[in-house]
């Protein structure tokens, strides 16, 4: 997927300014930046939750700028959210079923990822009949990811997948994310505040600040960059 000069305007406020970059097939791309930098906004402009005020979003060579969320889902673009949301009045299994059912409907054919693989990756086999409302945080994240995978995506945008997890759970969930890429070959874009975890898993990291592109490079380069360090130490940024 690639973004070309994407700007998002909320009234007089610009949440993203003239952003251009490309996501490589099969990579894990980390996205970082201070609170309010526009990371969630960026996720949404890629998945169809928001439409670019200016600029274009291309996916597999196709201009998807005007496509809604469900149509982009049909093209193979999935998303998980910063605040874990799921279908709380049905079971865990039915959450996955919904992903499978409506994902197939949106794309017009059955998904290529067998549900068994998804259950194996997310380790949800034993909780299929649990009411989703009773799942703990880590399980909720597994469900959200599982439902997204069930739609049969090529790329997943994950907004702060590690948020709220303790150290042990972070290790566990990072492993799940890694497997998604390795076993299923799905491209992953993940927003994360925890830069150490991000450096560990990501192939490249994109830094944005005040809705503007700062840099995009390998983790060791990005996290040793003076300018990035300055942003993270909270110094006044005047670029």
């Amino acid at each position: 997927m690639s973004l070309e000069n994407v700007t998002i305007q909320f009234g007089p406020f610009r949440a993203l300014t003239d952003l251009s970059f490309q996501i490589e097939r099969g990579e894990i791309l980390g996205v970082a930046g201070p609170n309010g930098a526009g990371k969630s906004t960026l996720m949404n402009v890629c998945t169809g939750g928001l439409h670019a005020s200016r600029g274009r979003v291309l996916f597999n060579g196709k201009d998807v700028t005007g496509f809604k969320r469900h149509s982009r889902c049909g093209l193979g673009i999935a998303q998980t959210f910063q605040i874990p949301t799921l279908l709380s009045s049905v079971t865990v299994g039915e959450n996955l079923l919904a992903g499978q059912m409506f994902g197939s409907e949106a794309r017009g054919s059955a998904p290529d990822i067998p549900i068994q693989d998804i259950l194996y990756l997310t380790q949800l086999e034993d909780t299929l009949n649990l009411p989703a409302s009773q799942a703990d945080l880590l399980t909720r994240k597994r469900i959200m990811l599982g439902a997204a995978l069930a739609t049969g995506p090529e790329i997943i945008f994950m907004d702060e997948p590690l948020g709220g997890l303790n150290a042990e759970e972070i290790v566990e969930f990072l492993q799940v994310i890694r497997h998604v890429r390795e076993e299923l070959g799905i491209t992953i874009v993940m927003v994360e505040h925890k830069t150490r975890a991000l450096a560990e898993i990501a192939d490249r990291i994109l830094i944005i600040n005040f809705g503007e592109f700062v840099m995009l490079d390998r983790p060791e380069v990005v996290l040793n960059d003076d300018h990035v360090v300055e942003i993270y130490l909270g110094k006044k940024h005047d670029a």
């Binding site: 939750g49 469900h70 889902c73 279908l87 709380s88 049905v90 409506f102």
Partner: peptide, 20 residues
């Protein structure tokens, strides 16, 4: 299932392909 999905979590429902 589509109805319940839209009621429970509207954006999540759209993200998994429900044509609202």
């Amino acid at each position: 299932l589509a109805f319940i999905a839209m009621r429970d979590a509207e954006t999540f429902a759209q993200a998994i392909g429900v044509n609202e």
